[in-house]
Amino acid sequence: MAALYETILNDLKEAILSKKLPPGSKLPTEMQLSTDYQVSRITSKRALTELENLGLIERTRGRGSFVKAQAPKANQTKRILFLLPFYNDLSLGNFTEGLLPILQDAQYDLLMTDFTYLTSHDCTSIQTEFSGMIYYATKEQDHLELLIELSLADFPVVILDKERADLDFPTVIANNLIGGFEATTLLLAQQHQRIGYLTNSQPLPQSTMQRYLGYRKAVKDSFFLSLEELPTLENFLALQQEKQITAWVCENDLIAIEAMRQLKAVKISVPDDISIIGFDNIQAAALVDPALTTISQNFDKIGYTAGQLLLEWITTGQKPSSQKIDVTLITRHSTKEISHD
């Protein structure tokens, strides 16, 4: 839970970055903020002090606090580059519904494309043509040289899906560990005692590993599949029979949907014979039969937060902190309570 002063800070920062409070606007006084937010004056004063430290406001004794005009930067193009490998299929995750409004409010244009863009654009051209970049990370070694160069140039970049602390870029990711934990906890509450984890990636990518750790945290000392035992779509049916597994937590919705297809092909009923739960809540999750129980990533909020952090960095020149976004369990019809009769 955010500290009380952070709530005030974030609300005012959002209003300033989105131009709802344009340069020269007078902010509420410490006393007014204390009343509006039901906090102490010390708390409201700290929020204003943090805004001043970020370079967003200037405070004059006897006059109050005012939104500070930002000096234009060299090569300021007011364009953002968003590199997204599935940009032409947003059913896999639509970040733009949260991202576009905050960029439009700040009068920034967005170019969204995939990694083929990098075949004709290098670090220098990206810095010349754009004010900042949002990068959806896939494999950790992909485009590493470009990211290193942008990091050394202190170019504003926000990374989605995977933490890259080694590059010192802020990241916005879903709380994958909590997601894996909540998925497994649901199945345990439905009396499943032999729950497996299904992936199609070895070694596990960072986000998938976090989901697996959530699975392990939930099952504790009960039955579980170790890393070495984890099956893929090619062999999970055999392992399911061998280990008498009654439910699967899947790495993502695409794997869950393919697993259901294979189960149906061999006359195994979901959820009567086996329960399946996915992760991501892509559009197809609600359309398959049976509709897929899943962990929903808040793509709108991830997109909005990425835009907010990027604008903060561009506007203030100060690198923001990474953010982890809560997930939500969506219970549909691919899971059910098991009968031990």
Results as ranks from 00 to 15, higher is better:
Ala3Ile: 07
Leu4Glu: 14
Glu6Asn: 13
Leu12Arg: 04
Leu17His: 03
Leu17Tyr: 03
Lys20Met: 10
Lys26Arg: 15
Thr29Ala: 10
Gln32Asn: 13
Tyr37Thr: 10
Gln38Pro: 00
Val39Ser: 12
Arg41Ala: 12
Arg41Glu: 15
Arg41Pro: 08
Ile42Asp: 13
Arg46Tyr: 12
Leu48Gly: 04
Thr49Pro: 00
Thr49Tyr: 08
Leu51Met: 05
Ile57His: 06
Ile57Lys: 09
Gly62Pro: 15
Gly62Asp: 12
Arg63Glu: 14
Gln70Asp: 02
Gln70Cys: 07
Pro72Lys: 02
Ala74Pro: 04
Ala74Cys: 01
Asn75His: 11
Arg79Gly: 01
Ile80Asn: 10
Leu81Cys: 12
Leu83Glu: 06
Leu84Lys: 09
Leu84Ala: 07
Pro85Gly: 11
Tyr87Thr: 05
Asn88Gly: 01
Leu90Tyr: 03
Leu90Lys: 14
Asn94Leu: 12
Thr96Pro: 12
Leu103Ile: 02
Thr113Asp: 13
Thr113Phe: 06
Thr116Asn: 14
Thr116Ala: 10
Thr116Tyr: 08
Tyr117Ile: 12
Thr119Arg: 11
Thr119His: 14
His121Thr: 11
His121Cys: 13
Cys123Ser: 15
Ile126His: 15
Gln127Trp: 04
Phe130Gly: 08
Gly132Phe: 15
Gly132Met: 11
Met133Tyr: 01
Lys139Cys: 02
Gln141Glu: 12
Asp154Glu: 11
Phe155Ala: 01
Phe155Thr: 01
Glu163Gly: 05
Glu163Ser: 08
Glu163Val: 01
Ala165Tyr: 03
Ala165Val: 06
Asp166Arg: 07
Gly180Pro: 01
Glu182Gln: 13
Gln191Glu: 13
Leu198Ala: 07
Asn200His: 13
Pro203Glu: 07
Leu204Phe: 08
Pro205Val: 05
Met209Asn: 14
Gln210Asn: 08
Gln210Val: 00
Arg211Val: 02
Arg211Trp: 06
Tyr212Pro: 01
Tyr212Gln: 04
Leu213Ser: 08
Leu213Trp: 07
Gly214Met: 02
Tyr215Ala: 10
Lys217Thr: 04
Lys217Ser: 11
Lys220Ile: 02
Phe223Met: 10
Glu229Cys: 02
Leu230Cys: 06
Pro231Thr: 02
Thr232Phe: 09
Leu237Trp: 02
Leu237Pro: 12
Leu237Asp: 09
Ala238Val: 07
Leu239His: 10
Gln241Ala: 12
Glu242Val: 03
Ile245Gly: 04
Cys250Gln: 08
Cys250Val: 10
Cys250Thr: 14
Asn252Tyr: 01
Asp253Thr: 05
Asp253Ala: 05
Ile255Cys: 10
Ala259Ser: 13
Arg261Cys: 05
Arg261His: 14
Ile268Gly: 06
Ile268Pro: 00
Ser269Asp: 09
Ser269Leu: 08
Asp272Ala: 15
Ser275Thr: 03
Ile277Arg: 00
Ile277Pro: 02
Ile277Met: 03
Asp280Ser: 07
Ile282Trp: 05
Ala284Met: 12
Val288Trp: 14
Ala291Ser: 15
Asp300Glu: 15
Asp300Lys: 15
Ile302Asp: 00
Gly303Ser: 11
Ala306Val: 06
Gly307Lys: 06
Gly307Phe: 06
Thr315Pro: 04
Thr315Met: 02
Gln318Leu: 09
Lys319His: 03
Pro320Arg: 10
Ser321Trp: 00
Ile325Gln: 02
Ile325Met: 01
Asp326Glu: 11
Ile330Asp: 11
Thr331Gly: 01
His333Ala: 12
Ile338Pro: 01
Ser339His: 12
His340Cys: 03
Asp341Pro: 15
